[in-house]
Design a protein around this nucleic acid. Structure first.
Lengths: 129, 129
DNA sequence: CTAAAACCTGACGTTGACGTCAGAGGCAAG
DNA sequence: CTTGCCTCTGACGTCAACGTCAGGTTTTAG
């Protein structure tokens, strides 16, 4: 498949795919005329890249971890990198959970009053705690 | 307290505090000579700002949500904003949890072998899946 | 065959949360 | 009083992950 099709299937921009190649996250064959050609597996790989980006990992880290995440093959230093990133992600999950709880507090304390028989206030209303 | 002390207590840079003021996230009194003066509560407020930044909210969103997060007072549109951000954070937690699981898979499959009596391989070793 | 659509490289633009530097003024200690 | 640290404003620098544009080639549809 060519780059446009991969972009559509993976849900990213063409520019992003070229950028991934530049960062050595994603390789491509080339046709005789120089156009990029991808195998079907590239869709999953792009998905994985997106997932790692979403976890806050920069390209540099992803390019180091990608081969072992895909193949399971790993060196001992890489294991430490993996463990470090894992704990980073874990901390971020705890932080986000805490933040979500804080928002939930506000949402529930204001929302419960409407569920206890009071009418839903009109738009633009200011509500006290 | 002056800006340097607040920065130290809150664990952020002086530049960050001035930036927060520029973004109207953090107000300050001024001394006769123009120096910023903060109350003790500013430490917590900065912590809250940091937490919201860590959750991926941009300044524009934080400045809208901050008053209601602090006071609990809220308008109906703001409630929708809060709910939207909550679901965004929730989705991010799920994504991170999935990513963490993926890293865990690699870590456990390689680490368990060491716990089953095999010697720990030397640094620089490449391990098969 | 031709026009539209897709692709190429190269290069500059964008955004957010600050870092950093310049030049000038303020404040407590000796 | 002056030395050394803190603070001020203003302005430019940074970094990552792309967006966007220019100018040219390739592929596809009719």
């Amino acid at each position: 498949m060519r780059i446009g099709e991969l972009a559509a299937k993976a849900g990213v921009s063409v520019r992003a795919l070229r950028y991934y190649e530049e960062q050595r996250l994603l390789a491509s064959e080339r046709s005789a005329s120089g156009q990029r050609l991808y195998a079907d597996g590239a869709v999953d790989r792009v998905g994985l890249i997106q997932q790692l980006y979403a976890a806050g990992l920069p390209s540099r880290t992803i390019v180091e971890l990608l081969p072992c995440v895909e193949t399971g093959e790993v060196t001992t230093e890489l294991l430490h990198r993996l463990a470090a990133e894992r704990s980073r992600i874990d901390a971020q999950i705890r932080s986000l959970t805490s933040t979500r709880g804080r928002l939930d507090d506000i949402l529930t304390t204001t929302a419960t009053s409407w569920c206890t028989g009071e009418p839903c206030p009109p738009a633009g209303t200011t509500l006290a705690p």
